[in-house]
Amino acid sequence: MSTPTPVTALARRWRLEVNMGTAEAADWQLCPAITSFEWSAEPNHEDSSTYDDDGWAGNTKTGQAWEVQATFNRKTSTDFTAYHPVHEKLRAVAMGWGADSEVPVRWMDRNGLPEAYQGSALVEWAPSGGETNDLDQVEVTLTGNGPLSQITNPLAA
């Protein structure tokens, strides 16, 4: 393995995909036109200090939650009769209930570096609105429902 050089990774390295198929027959498709992407996996720590710790604080990780926030330019067909199918899937899931309110997602380093994650998420859909000359953008929040798994990057060489 080569030693990393002092080149800074770019924020645009992330690629978000949505499973357009089923659990049995996954069909991972790109969510195009992302202009902003942020994710977090915040742990929950509880104080587990005891008298035996000689005054030092003790902490125990008792849970973890994950979330993705992405903004994208809404894409349509060239004749303006249909939205991009992945964007439509996210919008439909945001309006769903029960099993219809959750979607499998994954994101990875688009350059094939090892960082890649997968999980099932609830979707919040928030159109940005704007002025007459603004692009149609949507802010999507994917709130993890269950574990976030580290996966092998499907784009790795």
Rank of each mutant, 00 (worst) to 15 (best):
G21W: 05
G55D: 06
A57F: 10
D53N: 12
S77H: 09
Q150A: 12
P6Q: 08
T60V: 10
G146A: 03
T8Y: 06
Y117P: 04
Q64C: 08
N133H: 11
T5M: 12
C31Q: 01
N153Y: 00
K75N: 05
G146F: 04
Y83L: 08
E131L: 12
P6C: 10
L148C: 10
V123W: 03
S2W: 08
T143S: 13
W66L: 05
T62V: 15
G112W: 09
I34M: 13
D134Y: 00
I34Y: 01
M108D: 00
T78G: 12
W28P: 03
H84V: 11
T141S: 06
S2F: 10
R106V: 08
R13I: 04
T132A: 14
A126E: 14
P147Q: 09
L30H: 14
W107G: 02
E124T: 13
L30N: 14
A116T: 02
E102A: 14
T5I: 13
A156W: 08
P154V: 08
T60W: 02
T143P: 03
M20Q: 10
I34L: 12
D27K: 13
V105M: 08
T50F: 04
D53G: 03
G21Y: 05
G146T: 06
W97Q: 15
T81M: 07
Y51P: 03
S48C: 08
P85A: 04
A11L: 08
I151F: 05
A99W: 02
W39G: 06
P32L: 02
A41I: 07
K89M: 00
S120I: 15
A121C: 15
Q150T: 14
R15D: 04
S2Y: 10
A26N: 08
P154F: 07
L90M: 06
E46Y: 10
G98I: 09
W125N: 04
L16P: 02
G96F: 00
E139C: 06
W107M: 00
R12E: 12
E139H: 07
R106Y: 04
T152A: 11
T60M: 10
E115Y: 05
S36E: 14
V18A: 09
N111W: 09
T152I: 11
N44M: 15
L16I: 01
A25G: 05
Q69D: 13
L122W: 01
L90C: 00
A126Q: 15
S120D: 11
V123Q: 03
R91E: 05
A25N: 14
G63D: 09
M20F: 01
M95D: 10
D47N: 10
R74D: 07
L148W: 00
I151H: 06
P154E: 07
A92F: 04
D53T: 12
W28H: 04
K89Y: 01
P147C: 04
S101F: 01
A57R: 14
G119T: 03
N111T: 15
T152P: 05
K89R: 13
P43F: 04
M1V: 11
K61L: 12
T62P: 00
V18S: 02
D79K: 07
S128A: 15
Q137T: 15
A157Y: 01
D53L: 09
E124S: 15
Q150W: 07
Y117N: 02
